[in-house]
Write a protein that binds this DNA or RNA. Structure first.
Lengths: 239, 239
DNA sequence: ACTGACCTCACTATTATTGGGGAGTAGAAA
DNA sequence: TTTCTACTCCCCAATAATAGTGAGGTCAGT
């Protein structure tokens, strides 16, 4: 490189990106900027789909996906229940499968040190942003301490871009529910049965049913449970 | 004030905080640093509990909670499905309830301009970090453009601290669902009835019921609809 | 070899929910 | 003024859900 791009430049380039290659370019630039082995952004979908970008070798990415390693990768498992960024050393590598996985990763050119930022979006979307390197513990601790804040920020920007590229999020036109329908859906979503919900709203159970039915039609739902699920995932109610 | 603290100082003070008052102090310091009317961090809990900190008046906070305004607050509703920080102007204030809410908020000393950052943690935890002020649109657009990145970062730090203070709320019913339970919840959430779901999974309806029941138990849900709603809002299933 | 978690299936009984109907009010919008 | 939407109430028969009981199998980890 003639000149290292600043973090500002990288973030701006990332903001401007309108293809996946833009994210790829940004991850390479960031790797050079931070002078580490690897940068990786990895979207983990509970449907099993996944995609990502980063500087891991194609071979490792293919191997990872072919083997469905996200099911046993301690980084994925460990981050899934966390909010805080995590150093790989803090994770649970005790199982035999995990150690075998780590050994194989290193053979594929992954460094022994890692720092991963879990990121979440709407509807349970989950992704990881990872910095990877090979060095001793003290140097790594120093690095993560120094760059923690910018890594969080960059992780956020990567995920923002990824959500932008994911088409599902901008789809369905939302027909709004009436206030009473929102009440009904909300109470059902927090576990009330019809009698309790009707009582809470001070209306008859029959009336409550009318709201449930009309909400069901508006939401195009096949039954009450479906209606509540749709109301939730469309953000029409907050529980 | 003798001297405005820098953002670095505020973040460091926040990191050091080991009581809720520390968050409160940080929000006041941040308000002064940014020279805005209000800073607010607001945890929206699936149990209906909520807490937060910030510079809103006690009266407004009490009013908000007493009226369960999180159910109709366009900021909450609008941010819930988003990942990106959002300017309040982009939200849907068209309903009568929303306008009445806004009017009342202004009477309680809330400014007309707002910028909210949605934040998510494990198990569907959701919170908002908001900056509020009163100024014209151009000035506000300039402000949000200028401070966007640091606001994202600060939002993250506030939530990190909040999760640290309230581990129970996240850790409480952490039990993950088994694969079959996830299948069952997912199929119910997309509108299948038991017969269809059982057929889809190629198991008997009796067996399906066992999964629904065990998922319901794990989720601490009172009925099937509640279980599906919880699975959704905790991000255990994606529809 | 044992423990525990998961997957699969069956029975009985009671209670709750659903999906069809229909009908009248009030208030806002056209 | 008419029309529309939201809100309120009611019946009935069929279906779904709940709460117990039980059993037997696999598979991973200690």
């Amino acid at each position: 490189m003639l000149k290292k791009p600043t973090l500002e430049h990288i973030l701006e380039a990332l903001e401007q990106a309108d293809t996946l290659e833009g994210m790829q370019t940004a991850s390479v630039a960031l790797r050079d900027h931070l002078d580490v082995w690897h940068i990786a952004y990895h979207w983990v979908d509970s449907a099993g789909d996944q995609y990502g970008c980063g500087t891991y070798s194609i071979e490792w990415q293919q191997r990872y996906m072919a083997q469905n390693y996200q099911r046993l990768d301690p980084v994925i498992i460990g981050c899934y229940q966390r909010f805080h960024p995590v150093d790989w050393k803090q994770l649970d590598w005790s199982s035999k499968a995990a150690r075998a996985f780590q050994k194989e990763a290193i053979e594929y050119g992954i460094g022994n040190q890692g720092f991963s930022v879990p990121i979440r979006g709407p509807n349970g979307q989950f992704a990881l942003f990872t910095v990877n390197d090979s060095c001793d513990d003290a140097a790594w601790a120093h690095f993560t301490e120094k760059h923690r804040r910018e890594l969080i920020l960059v992780a956020h920007y990567f995920n923002e871009k990824a959500l932008y590229f994911e088409p599902d999020r901008v789809a369905d036109p939302v027909q709004p529910l009436s206030p009473r329908e929102v009440d009904a859906m909300t109470l059902l979503a927090i576990g009330y049965n019809r009698a309790q919900a009707a009582d809470t709203l001070s209306i008859s159970e029959h009336t409550l049913r009318v709201y449930i039915e009309s909400a069901r039609f508006k939401l195009g739902a096949m039954n009450t449970t479906h209606a509540v699920a749709r109301a939730l995932s469309r953000g029409l109610i907050v529980v």
